[in-house]
Design a protein around this nucleic acid. Structure first.
Lengths: 258, 258
DNA sequence: GCAAAAGTGTTGTCAGTACACCCATGA
DNA sequence: TCATGGGTGTACTGACAACACTTTTGC
């Protein structure tokens, strides 16, 4: 149909999902990365991706991706749209759009590399200077440093493939982190990685990671006062470690006012 | 390529652009709607759309749409991404994604219906109850009433085509209005429709439209104090009407902190 | 001079911060 | 009992809303 000048040749549609979880032993946020089995960017680490199918919406594809990549089959996860990336320079070969989503898992499951991946690993999330950092043993990746889209895609061409994530994934991650940080004080969906219940200390650890400060720099008293409208007290106290046991909270169903 | 089960059959990619402007005579915000010349939804009013071409990014396509639909050829407009709509039920026939953008024109140009449109008109924007309303003479459309996506798309099937905008455009508009409203107090890009310079009264008129109140309900003194960091005073005063001439302002280049 | 519209100033309230203090637990 | 960590309370500060007052224009 009207393909004379390639005008209506359809690009590939990729679903890119940034999957977050929380490691309760090391107390660190985690992001899922996979090592690509096929070109382009074969053997590079990347955000998990899949192609969209015609019978499903992008949200459904993002959920399917989780099932396929990490074999996890919980009833439903919280997934939200991040943005859509369409710059021509984002892929070096065939044109491909990326519809990017974020998923917050309530636990940190063991991973097995699914179709299209040689490996799948959790990478620990941390802030370094004004950027964010994903690391697993000797592997380390950072969110893009450039502030402007054109500058980033310009720099992307000269990049060393093995030092960086595939495609424009460092740019996508940058936007994801910004978005989460901006929403911390009114819709902290990132706390869903803490599962059904969490202590204020755990919440402060996540806030601190995005703010680039130490958890101890967030005053517990003030934090509770300024965020109590976002959390629901579920009375029960856990124990297990030294010190007074903390109360447990869950995210208040934060219906955003329309 | 791997088209066995229609799995990789590629959907159409539509760029939908919500184009805003401001009528300085009636002092009302305007949204551009077109009357569709071709099926589906032939003769229905709709947001202007185009198909994405492989040589361009979605942002470029959104700009091309403006040139083609309204023959306007300013150097560059401010365009921002709204969201991407992928629900299967959003189109009744062939599957199509919509990448939705918003453009804020610094003036309100005369319109001529471009390719694919029988007519193109500016519709005045106003708030009615908890919804928003677009009207031009006897024609009136409203943003979707449903709060949940599934509820909306369920209701969409039973809709009278001639009472409503085409496709899920009333849903898209709803999200657009919400987004603009939420950003009023930290990144009021909507004020770009006021052009290079504006008075505080004009700004208050736009705020009032989204807040569903009268401009007089916004205290000028307080408005100036709480928003002065967003505006830059450009000293000059205009006159032309009764009362003390107002100072002129422009949007401060609001770099968002990263 | 008067009305209209814009700008300035003043006060009270409320939310956020800094910080001191109290409580519950494990070793 | 002490150290550790969580919870509570108080005083200071700064932002915002309500509202009174002043300035500049057209008629």
């Amino acid at each position: 149909m009207l393909n004379m000048f390639g005008i209506l040749e359809k690009p590939l549609i990729t679903i890119t999902n940034i999957i977050w979880s929380f490691d309760r032993t090391t107390k660190q946020l985690q992001v899922l990365l996979v090592k690509r089995a096929q070109p382009p960017y074969q053997n590079s680490w990347a955000l998990p991706e899949t192609f969209m199918r015609t019978q499903e919406s992008a949200d459904e594809a993002a959920l399917r991706l989780i099932r396929e990549k990490i074999g996890l089959n919980l009833s439903d996860f919280y997934t939200e749209q991040l943005a859509t990336f369409t710059n021509q320079q984002r892929t070096s070969n065939e044109r491909a759009l990326s519809l990017a989503y974020m998923t917050f898992l309530p636990e940190m499951p063991a991973l097995k590399a699914g179709y299209g991946a040689l490996e799948a690993r959790w990478f620990a999330f941390s802030a370094v200077q004004k950027r964010y950092c994903l690391s697993n043993r000797q592997l380390t990746f950072q969110t893009a440093a450039e502030a402007s889209e054109t500058a980033y895609y310009q720099a992307l061409k000269q990049q060393q493939p093995d030092q960086h994530l595939a495609f424009d994934h460092e740019w996508i991650l940058r936007l994801a982190c910004q978005r989460i940080k901006n929403k911390l004080n009114y819709q902290p969906n990132i706390l869903l990685v803490l599962g059904a219940q969490f202590t204020l200390k755990e919440a402060r650890m996540i806030y601190a990671a995005f703010l680039g400060i130490k958890p101890s720099e967030i005053d517990n008293s003030n934090f509770k006062k300024t965020h109590k409208h976002l959390f629901k007290d579920i009375g029960i106290s856990s124990s297990k470690q030294i010190g007074r046991p903390a109360k447990l909270y869950r995210l208040a169903s934060n219906k955003v006012e329309f």
